[in-house]
Computed example of a mutant assay.
Amino acid sequence: MRKTMAWLKRSRHAFFAFAGLLIVWEAWVRIADVPVYLLPPPSMVAVDLFERWPRVLDHALVTGNEIVAGFLLAVVVSIPLAMIIAYSRPVERSLYPVIVFLQIVPKIAIAPLFIIWFGFGFTPKLLLVFLLSFFPIVVSGIAGFKSLDPDVMDLARSTGANGLKMFLRIRLPQALPQIFTGLKVGAALAATAAVVAEFVASDSGLGYLLLEYNSNLETPMVFAVIIVLSVLGLLVYYAVELIERLAIPWHVSNRATAEEARTT
Rank of each mutant, 00 (worst) to 15 (best):
S204L: 07
Y37A: 12
A188N: 03
V45K: 03
T123A: 12
F18Y: 14
V45N: 02
A82C: 09
V129M: 00
A188R: 00
K107T: 05
F180C: 08
A19F: 12
I84Q: 03
A60K: 03
V100W: 11
L189N: 07
V225I: 07
V185F: 11
K107R: 06
M1D: 10
G141C: 06
L211F: 15
I104T: 15
N162Q: 10
S158I: 04
A111M: 05
I67A: 01
V196S: 04
S88F: 14
V105F: 11
F145S: 05
E92Y: 13
T257I: 14
M166I: 15
H13F: 15
V47K: 02
A247I: 04
V185L: 13
I104A: 12
D149C: 10
Y37N: 07
Y37K: 07
L73R: 12
G70V: 06
L229I: 01
Q174G: 00
I110K: 01
A247G: 00
L95C: 12
V231C: 06
F122L: 13
A161E: 06
K107G: 00
L39T: 12
A82T: 04
I84P: 04
L242D: 11
M44I: 08
D48E: 12
V34D: 07
T4W: 12
K184C: 06
I67N: 00
K9G: 09
P150G: 12
M153A: 06
R245M: 14
P112K: 09
N162A: 10
L131F: 15
M153Y: 01
E244C: 09
L131V: 02
L176Q: 08
A143L: 11
V240R: 02
S204V: 08
L206E: 04
S204M: 10
V129P: 01
L148N: 03
A256C: 05
I104S: 07
Q103F: 13
F167R: 03
T192A: 05
R30C: 06
V152T: 05
P80Y: 13
G233A: 05
L61D: 03
R30V: 09
F101R: 04
W117N: 08
Y96A: 13
D203M: 02
S94P: 02
L21S: 14
S230A: 14
P112C: 14
A32R: 07
T4L: 15
P136N: 13
V100I: 15
I85S: 02
P41Y: 10
I179W: 06
I85L: 12
D154V: 00
A197L: 06
I116R: 09
R30A: 11
L189M: 10
Y37H: 13
A175I: 01
L232H: 09
G233C: 02
A239M: 09
L49G: 00
R93S: 08
D151C: 03
L95R: 10
F135Q: 04
I179K: 00
Y96F: 15
H13W: 14
Q178S: 10
L172I: 01
I110P: 00
P40C: 11
V56F: 03
L72Y: 12
